[in-house]
């Protein structure tokens, strides 16, 4: 990440924080960020349908920071999902800007990216630039066909698994621990 490290030290008022509120018992909250018309609500619906838990919340936003009003009533957000539309560079830029309002704690396995799979003729963004963005933030990237309901369910199930871990509902495991299996983070000597 190219941002100045000192910037992290001063706590910004509009920054999204993972631990500033107490968790609600057995509750998981996911925030989906992406431009209008990208299919956030369809995805959220698929997630809620695949979930067995009754206390799952999916919230959506077009960009960050979240508005200041009602921020007190908002629950703690366990995971942030960014959606990128491969057809529009505006969505890429918006995600890039929104990323600046995320506290660094989220980057320890509490965010992930979804890029839409579109026919090559209409693809506007380079695949490399999307994967580069995700690699820079050390997080997962899923490709999703926005027109296929089956594909959406597949992605929704994966997101649920990640959410379970990042909301702390799996005993003995944290998002950071799962990240430690990465080759570059693997400290265990051979």
């Amino acid at each position: 990440m190219s941002r100045d490290l000192n910037q992290f030290e001063t706590l910004r008022k509009d920054e999204l924080l993972p631990f500033n509120k107490l968790p609600i018992f057995m509750q998981e909250v996911m925030l989906i960020v992406g431009i209008q018309g990208i299919g956030k609500h369809a995805l959220a619906k698929a997630i809620v349908e695949s979930s067995t838990s009754k206390t799952l919340q999916c919230r959506t936003a077009t960009h960050l920071p979240l508005p200041e009003e009602h921020s007190a009533e908002r629950p703690r957000i366990d995971m942030v999902v960014f959606m990128i539309d491969s057809r529009s560079s505006a969505s890429y830029i918006q995600v890039e800007q929104s990323l600046q309002y995320i506290n660094r704690q989220y980057f320890l396995g509490k965010i992930c990216f979804i890029a839409t799979k579109v026919p090559t003729e209409t693809q506007n963004l380079e695949v490399e630039s999307i994967t580069q963005l995700c690699d820079d933030h050390g997080s997962c990237l899923f490709w999703m066909d926005p027109t296929s309901g089956a594909d959406r369910t597949v992605v929704a199930k994966k997101l649920l698994e990640m959410l379970n871990i990042s909301a702390g509902l799996k005993p003995g495991i944290t998002p950071l621990l799962t990240d430690c299996t990465h080759r570059l983070l693997n400290m265990q000597s051979f």
Partner: peptide, 17 residues
């Protein structure tokens, strides 16, 4: 041996999950 190490890591985390 590095491959075995990699699978070992996944096994440990997988057992926990």
């Amino acid at each position: 041996s590095q491959y075995v190490e990699y699978v070992g890591n996944l096994i440990e985390v997988g057992l926990l999950i």
